[in-house]
Amino acid sequence: MILVTGGTGTLGRKVVRGLLDAGRDVRVLSRSDKAPYDGVQVVVGDLETGEGVDKVVHGVETIVHCAGSAKGDDEKAKSLIAAAVPAGVRHLVNISVVGADTLPVVSGLDRKMFGYFAAKRGAELIIERSGIPWTNLRATQFHELTFTVAEQLAKLPVVPAPSGFKIQPVDAAAVAERLVELAQKAPQGQVDDIAGPRTYTFKEMVKVYLRAAGKRRMMLPMHTPGKAAAAYRAGANLSPGRGTGRTWEDFVNASLAR
């Protein structure tokens, strides 16, 4: 049995579908009892509180940990590990973010803007130290969230553009395919990053969306202070040479055509 946490989310649904197509028995941890697909076993549990997680992991050999949010991913990992260790889980596949181990998140503005990376790194360390054999895959930012950001910014009369920030967005479908592959292999520890095929400045990323949507907006360059922002400008969130999947342009055009 393979458990997918976050199995009803953007990435998790794709992982669940891929595992089902591979003929695997799949269970989903969810805060509701609604299954993302037929043939999936759903067990209600909450990683934020730890409630019901012991029942969710019972009888599970492999976990694909896709449950994530803007904050608190380290606490979710604690809840999962607390239940997975006594349950005898044999392999935990974790999805993290490129930059989790390199972005220097400290306090103040840095923590407010980049605390997500610190939480992801915290989750990685909790899993690594758990005693459960593990595989960790770091991905760059998903097209889906990048699209949401661009869509919201396009509603503004003037779009703020952090100077020097670059992104290498990746299709969640490509990430899901890799996770499905890793879940069916022996634990591998830290594996190569996965990233999109092209790198864009923040300004270029938004302009791709604006052109496809037929909109025009003024862009306002802005400098973001702090050590983490400096590391971001230096490319700590990028993974050159690891590109795969659809380009940002192709994803935007396909999304707007729906």
Rank of each mutant, 00 (worst) to 15 (best):
T201M: 04
D110L: 01
G7P: 11
Q41G: 02
Q152S: 13
P225H: 11
H143K: 02
A82L: 12
L29R: 09
V56C: 08
V180F: 03
K71C: 00
I2Y: 02
Q190I: 13
V191H: 08
G189K: 05
D250L: 04
Y209S: 08
L47W: 14
V64Q: 05
E204D: 12
V105R: 00
G68C: 07
N237H: 10
P36G: 03
V4P: 04
A83L: 02
T148Y: 01
D21L: 09
Y200K: 07
V16N: 00
V26N: 10
W248R: 06
R258D: 01
A77K: 04
V106D: 14
S163K: 14
L256S: 09
E128R: 15
L125Y: 01
Y200P: 09
R198N: 11
V252H: 05
G226N: 08
P162Y: 08
H65L: 02
R216L: 09
P162N: 09
E151K: 15
D250K: 13
D110Q: 07
R24K: 13
D38V: 02
V191K: 08
V105M: 00
A22C: 06
D250M: 08
T247M: 12
V43C: 06
F114S: 06
A84M: 07
Y116V: 00
R233Q: 15
S69Q: 11
G72A: 12
I2L: 10
V57F: 07
A228T: 09
L179V: 05
S130G: 14
Y116M: 02
A77W: 08
I132S: 11
T199W: 06
A183G: 13
E75A: 15
K55F: 02
Y209N: 09
T148Q: 12
S96W: 07
P187F: 14
G108N: 10
R90W: 00
M113Q: 09
A231S: 14
M222K: 05
V105S: 01
D250T: 13
I194M: 06
S32C: 04
G189S: 06
W134K: 02
I126R: 09
V15G: 00
I127D: 03
G243I: 14
R111S: 03
H223Y: 04
A67V: 10
H58Q: 15
Q190L: 14
A82P: 03
R138Y: 04
Y232L: 08
A70Q: 11
L47N: 13
V26A: 09
V89M: 03
E48N: 11
T201C: 04
P221G: 14
L182C: 08
E204T: 07
V56F: 03
K207A: 14
